[in-house]
């Protein structure tokens, strides 16, 4: 087995990614020559201890922080190569990527429905279509009846579901989740992991989940492990 997908229809192909912070004596290699690929409809767990470089790798793949070296292709498009971005990172993120974090990071002054709609409206979807899709997604994720509530009125699990709905709003080809269950109890944590698997399989999106939670590993198609910036051999 390898860090690359066997599926030919790879949604993510990252090669030789390296990220170095600082220089000289303060230099820290956060990610070292990482290569991985993820296929459409595949859900991959990224494991490793704190400080291993998992979140940094996610930010590189998510075009939030540019790598020092390497090449990234998403959905068949080369987005980073030869030390520079090949696309407008912000536009690419809103069109092709979905993000979920440990905290839901919902906009506090928008309702659950509005948080989902916002993701679509900033991607130039008409308001009516966005409203319709937000409603469908929230129903799909089991929080439809909470659509008109502000985040402060939702439980942690409900907030995380709304965050997933927001990540799915633009039908992204790749979803990146950074410890999305860390703030949830084991039951709700598993529910969220199953949700990601469902999304990957039903929406045909690639999903990478950074997690410490080994109890829900059975929902993943593959697991990868990182340590000291190295993307290591996959575990079974």
């Amino acid at each position: 087995m390898s860090t690359t997908s066997h599926d030919r229809d790879a949604v993510l192909e990252a090669t030789g990614l390296t990220k170095i912070y600082g220089s000289g004596h303060t230099e820290v290699v956060a990610v070292r020559d990482a290569t991985l690929s993820v296929a459409r409809g595949e859900i991959v767990a990224l494991l490793g201890p704190s400080g291993a470089g998992k979140s940094t790798l996610l930010t590189l793949i998510g075009l939030i922080v540019p790598p020092n070296t390497g090449r990234i292709a998403i959905g068949g498009s080369v987005v980073f190569d030869d030390h520079r971005m090949r696309v407008n990172a912000r536009r690419f993120r809103r069109q092709h990527l979905g993000f979920v974090f440990q905290k839901a990071n919902l906009i506090p002054f928008l309702t659950a429905s509005e948080n989902v709609r916002l993701a679509m409206e900033i991607n130039d979807h008409p308001s009516r279509a966005a409203k319709q899709r937000a409603s469908e997604l929230l129903d799909y994720l089991g929080v439809g009846e909470r659509a008109d509530h502000l985040p402060s009125k939702l439980s942690g699990g409900e907030q995380q579901r709304v965050a997933v709905a927001r990540a799915l709003a633009n039908r992204p080809s790749l979803i990146l989740a950074d410890e999305p269950t860390a703030a949830l109890d084991s039951v709700r944590g598993r529910q969220v992991m199953e949700l990601f698997a469902k999304v990957a399989h039903e929406q045909n999106a690639g999903v990478i989940v950074v997690t410490h939670d080994h109890r829900a590993l059975d929902v993943f198609d593959r697991t990868l492990e990182m340590e000291d910036g190295h993307l290591g051999r996959p575990t079974d």
Binding site: G62, I64, R90, R91, F92, R93, R94, Q95, L97, F99, N105, I107, P108, F109, L118, A119, I122, N123, R166
Partner: peptide, 16 residues
Amino acid sequence: LHDVAMLKLMGARNSV
């Protein structure tokens, strides 16, 4: 600021 960072991460234009 946190919400602004989130908007940027979601890909919102500066005009938003």
